[in-house]
């Protein structure tokens, strides 16, 4: 389970990085993004201690895990929309925001890696209703 802990700790660090960078941006898309990001961060904080008990993560951590994944889908969507907005409004913040896309992509690939680990260990049926399909290995 150490692998999962490493992954989710990295996600938490990414969430902090994004939150700090977006800061107090007042566009509605940025606000939506931040609201979801803060929820994700909070759920990661709930999830991390539970990862110590490997056997029960899909029961004790199921809800937090599911929210973390679903939040990531939303963050990705709102963030990309916000990037388009920054571009169209020629906002000087654009280059910095574009750099954050790499962080988001890293988060996504780590979540995909975690999905794969969880599926390997607990089987597809155990994760089907917890992890959104787009994070699962493609054979499904």
């Amino acid at each position: 389970m150490a692998e999962l802990t490493i992954i989710f700790e990295a996600l938490w660090a990414n969430a902090i990085k994004i939150e700090r960078t977006i800061g107090e941006a007042d566009n509605p898309l940025a606000k939506l993004c931040l609201t979801v990001l803060r929820e994700q961060k909070q759920q990661l904080e709930r999830l991390l201690p539970k990862l110590a008990d490997e056997g029960s993560i899909l029961t004790s951590g199921k809800q937090a895990l599911s929210i973390v994944y679903h939040d990531d889908e939303l963050i990705d969507s709102y963030f990309r929309s916000w990037l388009r907005h920054l571009k169209w409004s020629e906002d000087p913040f654009l280059p910095e925001a574009e750099r954050l896309l790499t962080v988001l992509e890293e988060t996504k690939s780590r979540l995909t890696e975690a999905a794969s680990l969880l599926e390997d260990r607990y089987g597809y049926d155990a994760v089907k209703y917890v992890i959104p399909a787009f994070y699962m290995p493609i054979h499904h």
Binding site: T35, E39, K62, I67, H70
Partner: peptide, 11 residues
């Protein structure tokens, strides 16, 4: 209602 995040079954 604000963010659009689907609630889990237990929520």
């Amino acid at each position: 209602q604000f963010t659009g995040r689907p609630l889990t079954a237990s929520e």
